[in-house]
Write a protein that binds this DNA or RNA. Structure first.
Length: 656
RNA sequence: GCUGACGUAGCUCAAUUGGCAGAGCACCUGAUUUGUAAUCAGGCGGUUGCGAGUUCGAUUCUCGCCGUCAGCUCCA
């Protein structure tokens, strides 16, 4: 143990009940916990000092609020999972001694550990590692923490080049270097850990995949093993069950089952929308258009441009890899490109006229198709594609309008999500190291964005340094069914484009001024948004979005004509209705309609036919529902109202 | 792009150490006329992703390409 300057001082701990303990600095938390109670020591996973989690074997250096964390405390789970990563590494080292160790942190929902090995792991390897982990857990090996100096650390990891590289980061001599040892395995680690490997009881290894060392694609690829761990068996089981359930709402699966879209190897990353899917797509475009009708100006611009535009915008230098280049037959050069973004073309349209400060903010919106040549490995269902359309907007505004404009755009975006029952995570990304513009400009831009953010009173995550080079931004993220976060909406301030394109307006002083540009998307892309919506609703769309809203089922051929007339009346009322008069049993047709997640199935039997009624089956009411007949006119009116109001609830079938 | 796994009928999946490629659903035909979550019978459907190689013989083994999936990188 290294002698620390503070090791002769005393620290005072304040227990949750207000009692205090004063102990010499350097005392182990386990000793403090033991002094509170032997049984508590058995239950203790770690402790919290001033809100900071540390384990039982790390010497106390500072006093403050002191809390013992047990399995019930949420903070303890990350400690367990971090230790699970070490147990995994312990098992891997036993079975594959040549493996070099990288990093092994706890992550949301689990943990991973990276290894450098000559041969990647197979599923069989994973099973073997998991079995070995169970042995390590049964051995109840204590986690032993040691604090060492750099020289000693280098000696311990002489065979682990990745750890030696990590040690290079320790440049501050005051920084504590610690190692954790469980049985034969020593890791360079700052902790915290559970007291011994026996604490690890319920865990599972989930997958293995390559991961670049330190996330750098120029460095070697390590093999990463993902797993998860819980304190209780039922929690682990519930988690694994959730993963299975999530797969059932995967938009790729539902897209096939509900006949919404397909992808074809002849055009990877581009969507074929079926007739049902196209209805859904168009409904969303129509909806956005309706919401934007008053305050935005929709425009359309070309899809193909000469490289001159991209040189002007900077894309030719920075983004060409991602652009689809087209051969110019006359020049023989690939100097034409499909547009990957709308902004440059919107600037051209803006430049086609002189603008007065009176027209600002001017908001151009479009639904044009964009193409980006994403690397193959990045493609993923509809969430990451090569061809897509954004509900893209470029706002040209005066700098003094930023706060009010951002507020306006945020309300617009959040209101839109809310109408689907979607909740997004807000991220505020500030100035990156490489940027244009002076600090005063960034100060103004960031404070304007921040003011608008805080006006919404919604929590947001600060991503310092993550802004675009041309300005700070607010991103709106949602997660898919398997927990991956996807960016949908965005609000980005841009000070660079107005300079590059020499955008101007005439101010009230009759001189020329530079506007600011805001890039805004709401759905992100319709492709991605639809993917998220499919998963959000699990394919059970609200009436207004359902490609097929009503299916009418005559019980026998005797009701076929009456049913057909009811369908006609529905179609005339603008309802997307179909007649299912196949000679299948009612059971069969009801089952199929349910599988297709049709909001309403109207059964027409003898009784209904005689009284101009329909017996409405409402989706989600479950099997064996006893539908009461509703007058056909009344039902039609209700479906229309439900559609018009874009209600998320299915209420048209309730008793009259 | 990188690492790995995978690719069999429209869909979901089978096919015992390399030996005639199958089932259910869907689709078509016929029967059935059904009161609420899959009625019965028959039929159609395949150069096993594509291309080479090894072999008497390849869905199976090897290589290349294409695509999909997970993760990394990147991003709406």
């Amino acid at each position: 143990m290294i002698d620390r300057p503070d090791s002769h001082a005393e620290v005072t701990l304040v227990l949750p009940d207000g009692a205090t303990r004063t102990v010499p600095a350097g005392t182990l938390p386990s000793d403090v916990v033991r002094s509170i109670g032997e049984r508590l020591l058995l239950a203790a996973v770690a402790v919290s000092v001033n809100g900071e989690v540390q384990d039982l074997m790390t010497p106390l250096r500072r006093g403050g609020a002191f809390r013992v964390l047990t399995e019930k405390d949420p903070e303890a789970l990350a400690v367990l999972r971090h230790s699970a990563a070490h147990v995994l590494a312990t098992a891997v080292r036993r079975l594959r001694p040549e493996a070099k160790i990288g990093f092994g942190p706890a992550i949301e929902d689990g943990f991973y550990y990276d290894f450098e090995v000559a041969h990647p792991f197979t599923p069989d390897d994973l099973a073997a590692f998991e079995a070995e982990m169970r042995k390590v857990a049964q051995e109840k090996l204590p986690f032993v923490r040691e604090e060492v100096d750099t020289a000693e650390a280098r000696r311990r990891f002489v065979d682990d080049p990745l750890k030696l590289e990590r040690l290079d980061d320790f440049t501050d001599p005051a920084e504590i270097i610690s190692t954790y040892t469980d049985g034969p395995f020593v890791d360079l680690c700052r902790g915290p850990h559970v007291p011994d490997t026996g604490r690890l009881k319920h865990f599972k290894l989930l997958s293995a995949a390559g991961a670049y060392w330190r996330g750098d694609e120029k460095r070697q690829m390590l093999q990463r093993i993902y797993g998860t761990a819980f304190f209780k068996k039922d929690e682990l089981d519930a988690h694994l069950f959730r993963l299975e359930e999530a797969k059932k709402r995967d938009h790729r699966r539902l897209g096939k089952e509900l006949d919404l879209f397909m992808l074809h190897p002849f055009s990877p990353g581009a969507t074929f929308w079926t007739e049902r899917g196209t209805i859904l797509y168009n409904l969303l475009v129509e909806y956005v258009r309706e919401r934007q009708q008053r305050d935005f100006a929709e425009i359309k611009t070309p899809l193909l441009y000469n490289k001159g535009l991209w040189e002007l915008s900077g894309h030719w230098g920075k983004y060409r890899e991602n652009m689809f280049l087209v051969l110019d037959a006359e020049s023989g050069e690939h100097d034409i490109s499909l547009k990957p973004m709308n902004c440059p073309s919107h600037y051209l349209l803006y430049l086609s006229k002189k603008h007065s400060y009176r027209e600002l903010p001017k908001r151009f919106v479009t639904f044009d198709v964009l193409h980006r040549n994403e690397v193959t490995g990045a493609l993923s269902g509809l969430t990451r594609v090569r061809q897509f359309a954004q509900d893209d907007c470029h706002v040209f505004l005066r700098e003094d309008q930023i706060t009010s404009e951002v507020k306006f755009l945020m309300d617009f975006i959040l209101g839109y999500y809310e109408s689907f029952g979607l909740t997004a995570t807000l991220k505020f990304a500030t100035r990156p190291p490489e940027r244009v513009g002076d600090d005063a400009m960034w100060d103004r831009a960031e404070s304007a964005l921040k003011a608008a953010l805080e006006a919404t009173a919604k929590p947001y995550q600060l991503k310092a340094g993550d802004g675009a080079f041309y300005g700070p931004k607010i991103d709106f993220d949602v997660t898919d069914s398997i927990g991956r976060a996807w960016q949908l909406g965005t609000i980005q301030l841009d000070y660079a484009a107005p300079e590059r394109f020499d955008l101007t307006y005439t101010g009230d002083d009759n001189t020329t001024h530079r506007p600011v540009v805001i890039h805004r998307a709401v759905s992100g892309s319709f492709e991605r948004f639809i993917a998220i919506l499919i998963e959000h609703f699990a394919g059970a769309f609200p009436t207004w979005l359902a490609p097929e809203q009503v299916r009418v089922l005559p019980i026998t051929d005797d009701q076929r004509d009456v049913a057909a007339k009811i369908v006609e009346r529905m179609l005339a009322a603008g309802i997307r209705a179909h007649l299912d008069d196949r000679s299948e049993t009612l059971k069969y047709r009801v089952a199929e309609g349910a599988r297709m997640k049709i909001p309403y199935m109207c059964v027409v039997g003898k009784r209904e036919a005689e009284s101009d009624q329909v017996a409405v089956n409402t989706r989600g009411a479950g099997e064996g529902q006893k539908p009461a007949p509703v007058p056909a006119d009344r039902f039609i009116e209700r479906v229309r109202d439900e559609t018009r109001s874009r209600s998320l609830l299915l209420e048209a079938g309730r008793a009259p």
